[in-house]
Simulated assay, not measured.
Amino acid sequence: MTTEHRAFADLPFSVGQVVRGEPFTVSEEDSDHFERGTWLDRAYPEGDVPEFPDTLIEGFHLLSLLDAVARFAAGEAAHDMWGLNYGLDKVRWVSQIHRGDRIVPTFEVLDVQPKDGGFKVLRRCVYTVEGNQVPAMVADWWTYALPRGEFEKGRHG
């Protein structure tokens, strides 16, 4: 595993790079906030589906954490650029994650393409429950990276 690129200009050379983020857990309070914020509590007022364990974390909750978890993994590496969400190609929830599980995130750069003074960057984002061999979630996620100052000038929309 290598460390994350350190500058905007290095993005084209980052293909193949893998960054391991800090393990994290999702608490019951986190799940409750997600359910309220996404109206799941309104959509399913009767509560959880009886067939599902109470501790099971909603897949879209895990997906919604990608931006923050990727930022934590990048640390100071992204100090000279903006990263905007560009979309997802594929997301799979392969195995369950429960509240309290230690989730290990990894991010591998699969592709970098020039676009309007910036770069589209495709990363494979994987969450694995610590101690498991099989990943729990795999997402191929595009971001659009621009050098700091460019977005603020209104050149990109």
Results as ranks from 00 to 15, higher is better:
R71E: 14
D80Q: 07
D111W: 10
T143R: 03
V18G: 04
V129A: 00
V126N: 01
D80K: 05
Q17C: 15
L63M: 12
P105I: 01
L63Q: 07
V18M: 07
F34S: 02
S64W: 02
A78H: 13
T143V: 10
E29W: 07
V26H: 03
E22L: 11
V126Q: 03
V19Y: 03
P114N: 11
L62K: 00
P53S: 14
L146D: 00
I97M: 06
R102W: 14
E35M: 15
W93V: 10
W93H: 12
H98E: 09
V121W: 04
R99W: 01
F119Y: 08
T38M: 08
W39G: 10
L40N: 06
L84G: 08
S14K: 00
G59D: 05
L65W: 03
R123C: 02
D116Q: 14
G118E: 02
E130D: 12
W93E: 01
W93I: 13
R123K: 12
S27R: 07
G117R: 06
V129N: 05
R148K: 15
G59Y: 05
F107I: 00
E51V: 14
R123S: 00
D89I: 06
W39Q: 12
D30S: 09
W93K: 08
D111L: 11
A145Y: 02
R124K: 14
G117L: 09
D116I: 08
G118K: 05
R20N: 13
G118A: 06
V109G: 00
P23D: 09
A73N: 04
I97C: 04
Y144D: 00
G87I: 04
L122C: 07
V109K: 01
R148V: 12
E28R: 15
R148M: 09
G83P: 03
E22I: 09
L65Q: 05
V94D: 10
P135G: 03
G16D: 09
Q113K: 14
L65S: 01
N132D: 13
A136R: 03
M81W: 06
F119H: 00
V104Y: 06
D41M: 10
P147L: 02
P147A: 08
I97A: 02
L56N: 01
N85P: 06
R102G: 10
I97H: 04
